[in-house]
Amino acid sequence: MDRITVIGGGFAGLTAAITAAEAGASVTVHEAHHTLGGRARTAEGPYRTNEGPHALYSAGPHWTWLKQRDLIGPLAPVPAREAARLRLHHKGALRRTPPFAMLKLLRRSCQQAPEDVDFMTWATGQAGAEGARAAANYAAVALFHHDPGSLSAAFVQERLRRAMRLPPEANCPRGGWANVIDRMAGRAWNLGVRMETLARVDRLPVGKGPVVVATSLASARRLLGDASLTWPSGRTALIDLALTSRRGDAFAVSDLDAPGWIERFTARDRTLAPAGEQLVQGQIPIAPEESGADGVARAEHLLDLAFEGWPERVTWRRESVASGRTGAVDPPGTSWRDRPSIDRGDDVYLVGDQVAAPGVLSEVSFNSALEAVALALRIRERLDLKRA
């Protein structure tokens, strides 16, 4: 039986562990924290917040994989009456509909955008400067980057089309992402996966079979001693608020004047906050020279427009900055194929959301985990044949 070690018990690590165990391998997962989940953890207590906005896109390959194994659980769809309360911040005011020029980028002729041109240049040729800028900022909901227009046109356009698809692709598990992680952990346990928490790994195990490193790119860089493990990512100010409920609050606000998104998550799922309270989460991408306070100030301006009297209604508040924790972004002239490779040699494989695998948001972690396990098991078989 093949033995595989997985370092990291987040979404990518659990996907790799389940896949390897289903193929008959003996798997051990090492997780540095006392709970599994990584960035897919959900806070305990009265306010069930995720570590930043999370969504499962239903057209992705991991959706089918999770559904087949009954790992998603109940979902929290957006009621139609709430969906009608989506607001767009454009030219300093809240609007119900996007600028017409922005919709031009959803035409069939715009499906394929070039990799070697920045999005703003390409989209301006398709929809004009105003439509291009609004579209770039709207796409930030799946980018977490302060200047989406400067990134590869192909990279941004794929995320824009998926974010604007009707019916919406983005789904949220009821009760937060922790429910998905708990189901994945249960599946792994039933398959015989050994899971060790509070088990920080400072050096790679030797002689124990293939190793799958399912950590952040920064942690992998230190663990593997490989300075080449770098790739650009976003930097985002996050704000979580609990507000006393009030009729007329927006469901979500997308900023088309600058990148940013605020959503009232209890519009989907009332279990995320106590009765009579609303849980609101915002993500505002910030530039390298900006502080978290700059992002929070922009978020508060959107709150002023969409949540009347919100300062007097706050019952709980939390702020943070996510730096390099929101997935890869591809500059012009690059694609996912140019990111750090999964196969690092010597039976070591790298998985996560900043490696060479396709997809949007968590799909990158999922695809890289499946590829890593396939490579690991195939290579082991070849070595066994050579020895025979």
Rank of each mutant, 00 (worst) to 15 (best):
A83M: 12
R81G: 09
R108W: 10
A153C: 10
A76Y: 05
S150L: 01
A140Q: 08
H146A: 06
R133M: 14
M102W: 04
A127K: 12
D118G: 05
T124I: 00
S152M: 01
A93E: 05
Q111S: 12
L166W: 10
D147V: 08
R133T: 15
A123K: 00
A154R: 08
G128S: 08
V156G: 02
P168A: 12
L75Y: 02
A80M: 12
F144R: 02
E115W: 01
I72D: 02
H145K: 07
D147N: 14
R85A: 10
L71N: 06
M102D: 01
D116Y: 07
A134T: 11
M102I: 03
R95L: 11
R162L: 11
S150N: 02
R165G: 05
E158Y: 01
R108M: 00
A129Q: 13
P167R: 03
K104Q: 15
P98L: 08
L94W: 13
R162M: 10
Q111R: 15
R133S: 15
K104D: 14
L88R: 10
A113S: 00
H90E: 08
H146Q: 05
P79Y: 00
P79K: 01
N137K: 11
D147L: 07
N137D: 06
G149N: 11
A127M: 10
W122N: 08
L143W: 00
A80S: 15
C110R: 10
G149D: 07
N137G: 09
D118I: 05
H145Q: 05
G149C: 06
R162E: 09
A84V: 12
S109F: 04
C110I: 08
R161W: 10
R107P: 08
S152W: 00
E158M: 10
R108G: 08
L86R: 14
